[in-house]
Design a protein around this nucleic acid. Structure first.
Lengths: 236, 236
DNA sequence: GTCTATACACCGATAGAC
DNA sequence: GTCTATCGGTGTATAGAC
């Protein structure tokens, strides 16, 4: 009799209830994260918020790190959605402007979700190796930026840079991975622009540029505009 | 009689003993930091290492944050010494090579002291506003990089970039602060190269570039070489 | 002044009753 | 699957011995 209740319908219901509780826990954890930051995210506090006892949460997330991993994926997807929407909305416009717009949209997301930004681009959690789950979500932003280069209506040639054969091989594999057809110097320029974008943004988010300039947004716009030019993206 | 012992000599001895205990605690904390990272740095563990009870440590550091602040200053100075030595050692050589060498020395320091790097360039400590003590030590690296530009034997002109009047005013103040005499476009190029350097390094240190290229050092060298050129630093 | 001892309120995690 | 109880750990604070 007990065995007969193990139908797919019942397990389906159970699985759904389980997924709902999991989602509720995750939502509460996201609220805590936004309010207090990842450091202060306590599994017990999350449990209290959803009306459970702390040990019950362990049925849904095997550890605090597991919960954080889910929050990382959630944050990556949130940023990915944000940037994808921006890139889609600017389709057809000049590539240089699209690059700057995408950069500005990343910045606006970061300013709106500072603790999420810190979670994914800040110091990794101690003894924590990002599971494969996070990799796919994590590359969405890079792919969105690359798509702007790919869809550009012609690229101005960039100043040639000496690149060794080993690095050139890595670049070729990278281009195949993201379906981009440019030369090595442009590949380097894209990578450089990418790291510059997040370097400046991370500096701003983490206070390294405090009192550097009066208007952080203006600096960010100028810097990303400059980097768009260095890739060879055209302004019209 | 008790009052007579309050001579400057005695307080001098006391102050010295106090400084020595403080230094011992700080050294133990630095060891813990290097071994386990800032997250896991516990005041109690440090106290055990130096043979004290946790509450006794509070006589020397008013809180865990206070101890972390001292470690931040220590890390900034360690990096500052490292880069200063590199910049001094390359005096007279072509500016582009000096820039790349300085960048490589920053990277080698980061690789040798990953937890110190995370402490100063990673996610800020929760609810922690860097005291003024850390600012002076924190700017040493930037000043070292700027000195390479300042001492360059002529700069190639950089592509002009449109910069608004407000940002130009900030740039002028910045140049006065670091004693650098270049135009606005070059100022932006220096800032961009600076953020690119730390952006790529942070990406590497925090695992964001894992599986991106086979040789991270080669990428770093190529990227910083490219940025040196974008500043107009000459190769001979 | 410096240290010990102790207390408080948390935390992540686990064992085991129901 | 959810609960209570518990363990060993933490930062922080205070009282009091020397």
């Amino acid at each position: 009799m007990a065995a007969s209740s193990r139908s797919t319908t019942v397990t389906g219901v159970r699985a759904r209830a389980r997924a709902e509780v999991r989602a509720a826990i995750l939502a509460a954890a996201a609220d805590r994260l936004a309010a207090d930051g990842a450091d202060a995210l306590s599994l017990r506090a999350v449990a209290r918020d959803v009306g459970m006892v702390s040990s019950a949460v362990y049925r849904y997330f095997s550890s605090r790190d597991d919960l954080l991993t889910a929050l990382i994926v959630r944050a990556y997807d949130s940023l990915g959605d944000h940037v994808d929407a921006c890139v889609r909305a600017t389709a057809g416009r000049p590539a240089a402007a699209r690059w700057v717009d995408a950069a500005m949209s990343i910045r606006s997301w970061a300013l709106a979700h500072p603790n999420d930004y810190a979670l994914i681009y800040g110091t990794p959690i101690r003894g924590y190796a990002a599971p494969d789950d996070t990799v796919e979500s994590g590359t969405r932003v890079s792919r969105a930026l690359v798509s702007i280069v790919r869809e550009a209506d012609g690229l101005d040639p960039v100043a040639p840079v000496a690149i060794g054969p080993a690095l050139a091989a890595s670049f070729a594999a990278l281009r195949a991975e993201v379906d981009l057809d440019v030369d090595d110097s442009t590949t380097l320029a894209v990578l450089t622009a990418w790291t510059q974008l997040f370097g400046l943004l991370t500096f701003e988010m983490f206070g390294q540029t405090r009192n550097l300039v009066a208007d952080d947004e203006a600096l960010f716009r100028a810097a990303t505009t400059s980097m768009a030019a260095s890739i060879g993206l055209r302004t019209e």
